[in-house]
Design a protein around this nucleic acid. Structure first.
Length: 354
DNA sequence: AACGCGGGGGA
DNA sequence: TCCCCAGCGTT
């Protein structure tokens, strides 16, 4: 890249961004805490999904201190449905570190901000450039796609080490005057114009500088390998209610999928022909009688599928429960953060029992 | 370097 | 219906 090319590209990109940028809630502020919250929510999550969560979250936790002092249960309730719940736990841990180690001021160097829980190379660069105007790269999947086309970079973006090439490219392009708009411009271009399939090249502000467009290769880039196999887990869940209206929930293990979240008692169906009643009795040490079916659905995670056949059941007699199980009243259940598949069952059960 | 982590949207 | 998306922490 020669100096003229760099200047032309960054100028075109920054001007386009300033002119065409979407009106998003986190673009009304430069508060590093709020930018941080938005960037964490935007990891692996689409803009349209994030907007309502972002608004509610900042109404409830408008400052570092309010989030640091929040109960984890309440915090996760705000996060309910967003997924990747460790993001919320790491965000709170990071916020606590800022208060304890940095007198409540989000650090403004890559070295320091990167030590915070949940802040990796991308989030560090995003907060630094957007909130503080520091000329740092913020390379996410969008940026890699845009740059691979613009500069005809044929490196496999699935490989961790190829990210360095894109970070170096951003550091060459970065506008010392406005690193915020350059970084956001790259991401906005990836979201609106330079999309994964069918890029809208005719509307692109940097088309005349785009090597892939010149070569007619924009649909072929970026190069991305990797294909993970997924495993199928068939699960069944049951809503068990006592005569005095208590409902049984089970707390998931503190590590792994949906860590520490509450769910209805669930069993993985083995190939043998046991009934769910027998399996529940074996796993939970209680006897139930089969009631009416509530809801059947399939929920697909990246690596497993929950086939939910859930039904309402009555208790026959009480025995010793496993320690990770607890009886809840309806009111208590409402305050528990629950993942989407569990919420589906809960909502279906409530509807039946209005 | 490879894997696990949710949920929504598009092919 | 299935496949894809994609930063960060852990291993």
């Amino acid at each position: 890249m020669n100096d003229l090319y760099k200047k032309q590209v960054s100028n075109a990109l920054v001007s386009w961004f300033e002119e065409e940028k979407r009106d998003l809630p986190w673009r009304k502020t430069k508060d590093p805490y709020k930018i941080w919250v938005s960037e964490v929510m935007l990891q692996q999550t689409k803009v349209d999904t994030v907007i309502p969560y972002y608004e509610r979250f900042l109404t409830k936790y408008p400052s570092l201190e309010s989030l640091a002092n929040a109960e984890e249960e309440e915090l996760l309730k705000e996060w309910e449905g967003l997924g990747y719940y460790s993001r919320a736990r790491n965000l709170q841990a990071g916020v606590k570190e800022v208060i304890e180690e940095y007198h409540g001021v989000v650090p403004s160097t890559r070295k320091e901000i990167s030590t915070l829980k949940g802040v990796g190379p991308y989030t560090a660069g995003a907060v630094l450039s957007i909130a503080y105007g520091v000329p740092e790269h913020a390379v996410d999947g969008n940026v890699m796609r845009v740059l691979s086309r613009l500069l005809l970079i044929k490196e496999d973006i699935a490989k961790p080490k190829s990210k360095k090439i894109f970070e170096e490219a951003v550091m060459e392009l970065i506008d010392e005057e406005n690193p915020s708009s350059l970084n956001q411009g790259l991401m906005e271009l990836g979201a609106l114009i330079c999309t994964p399939t069918k890029p809208k090249c005719l509307l692109c502000p940097v088309r005349e500088f785009c090597t892939a467009f010149f070569e007619g290769m924009q649909e072929e880039l970026p190069i991305k390998t990797s294909n993970k196999k997924t495993k199928l887990h068939k699960m069944k869940a049951v809503v068990i209610e006592t005569k005095d209206g208590k409902i049984l929930l089970e707390k998931r293990p503190s590590k792994g999928l949906l860590a520490s979240m509450w769910q209805f008692p669930m069993v993985e169906l083995p190939t043998t022909s046991h009934t769910i009643e027998e399996l529940i009795e074996h796993d939970y040490q209680i006897r139930i009688e089969k009631g009416k079916e509530i809801i059947t659905f399939k929920h697909i995670f990246s690596h497993l599928t929950w086939e939910m056949e859930s039904y309402e059941a009555r208790l026959k007699d009480d025995m010793e429960l496993p320690i990770n199980c607890k009886w809840f009243t309806r009111e208590e259940i409402v305050n528990q953060p629950m993942p989407v598949p569990v919420l589906k069952i809960w909502n279906a059960w409530k509807e039946r029992n209005l």
